[in-house]
Design a protein around this nucleic acid. Structure first.
Length: 108
DNA sequence: TAATTGACTTCGC
DNA sequence: GGCGAAGCCAATT
């Protein structure tokens, strides 16, 4: 078990904790995982999406952008919308409300 | 071990 | 709103 594996496990655990109808950004997940600048690394972990029960579609990009989904970005939008998240083209309209906040403080 | 890649983020044009 | 460049981190080859 290497640190990298631990990081991946941590990311998956965090994503799994995202409640339905809420979304978190790659940066947020990365920060919770212990690497505030590892948004890209989080993306790499999600790419695997090996763990079942992990709603990878609830992880979106910063600024309310949907981000990607292995090429099935349309599916991701559909899943999010099905959970009450309003998505326009590639942006989440109510992103600020639906964002999964652990501290309740938006960045200033 | 080194180089490349990617579901990122931010800034500038 | 769209496109490109630089910076960042971990996984993969």
């Amino acid at each position: 078990m290497s640190d990298a594996d631990l990081f991946r496990r941590r990311v998956l655990a965090i994503v799994r904790r995202i409640p339905a109808g809420r979304v978190a950004t790659y940066g947020d997940v990365a920060a919770l995982a212990g690497a505030p600048r590892a948004a890209r690394a989080v993306g790499n972990v999600m790419k695997g999406c090996n763990a079942p029960g992990v709603p990878c579609h609830r992880v979106v990009a910063a600024g309310g952008r949907v981000g990607g989904y292995g090429g099935n970005e349309a599916l991701k939008r559909a899943l999010l919308r099905a959970e009450g998240i309003i998505v326009s083209s590639r942006r989440i309209s109510n992103f600020t409300e639906r964002r999964w906040k652990t501290r309740g403080l938006p960045r200033t």
